[in-house]
């Protein structure tokens, strides 16, 4: 992990690098500088928690990493400069390299848990139907939802839905797992279950970089690295020993 001071250019060597990334919104005559000259280098096998209050730019940072929002500057993921990609290439990037866990779960309501995971695998791989089902089943087992794999989102609790979302994100073997306030809509118990799933995935997959966005200091304790944002700027970056999610309380 390389810490980069604002304004000072140093060599970036991580799996994900951001150089002078800026994001400016124009809303109703106001200009909001969501990200200001961010330069970062992030390595795989880590759970990076981006922490900050509302409006600090943490979700924007996640979005530009996931190529679902545009920005100025340069972002490189596994030597691929995503800020230079066209729309089609960005779709391919998201399909093959990114896994998303959204605050509102965003499962496909017409698909059951298994089919939701299968969908992502089918999109990103060329596996046979059998292999797709097997992998999806395995991931649902990992998140503790094997028994409920045929249930639809409407029949699952919020925590269960988010665990399905986690399985969907990981089952496609992404290089980058992006989690946007994954516990924002959940109770503490459900939230802990989801965070445990994420922590376990990080441990199992050293080749994946996981970025989790939260405003909750307690939740931030599960990360290997905490990137603190304030008003669109990196306030600090700290490495830490993560606390297991099940031991957290908030």
């Amino acid at each position: 992990m390389h810490v980069v001071d604002q304004g000072i250019k140093i060599r970036l060597e991580g799996m994900v690098t951001l150089e002078n990334v800026n994001r400016v919104y124009h809303m109703g005559g106001h200009t909001i500088h969501a990200l200001k000259d961010i330069s970062l280098s992030l390595e795989t096998g880590k759970l990076v928690v981006v922490l900050g209050p509302s409006g600090s730019g943490k979700t924007t940072l996640l979005n530009v990493l996931g190529a679902i929002d545009k920005c100025d500057g340069k972002i490189t993921v596994s030597n691929l400069e995503i800020t230079r990609l066209n729309k089609k290439q960005l779709t391919k990037y998201r399909r093959e390299k990114c896994g998303f866990i959204f605050q509102f779960f965003n499962l496909l309501p017409v698909y059951n848990a298994l089919e939701n995971v299968e969908y992502a695998i089918e999109l990103a791989s060329k596996l046979s139907r059998k292999e797709v089902t097997k992998r999806a089943t395995d991931y649902l087992r990992k998140v503790g939802l094997f028994e409920k794999r045929y249930l639809f989102p409407s029949q699952l609790s919020g925590g269960e839905q988010q665990r399905v979302a986690a399985a969907r994100a990981m089952a496609k073997n992404p290089e980058l797992l992006l989690c946007d306030e994954p516990t924002g809509e959940l109770s503490v118990t459900e939230g802990k279950q989801v965070l445990t799933v994420i922590q376990n995935m990080v441990k199992e997959r050293p080749d994946v970089l996981t970025v989790l966005v939260t405003h909750n200091q307690k939740i931030a304790q599960i990360g290997d690295v905490i990137v603190r944002l304030r008003s669109g700027e990196v306030d600090s970056i700290e490495e830490q020993s993560p606390i297991p999610a099940e031991k957290l309380s908030w």
Binding site: T91, C98, F104, N106, L108
Partner: peptide
């Protein structure tokens, strides 16, 4: 709309 946006986000092409 949200479902479509989700599909696009996870990599479904247009």
């Amino acid at each position: 709309q949200r479902e479509i946006a989700t599909l696009l986000t996870i990599g479904t092409n247009n």
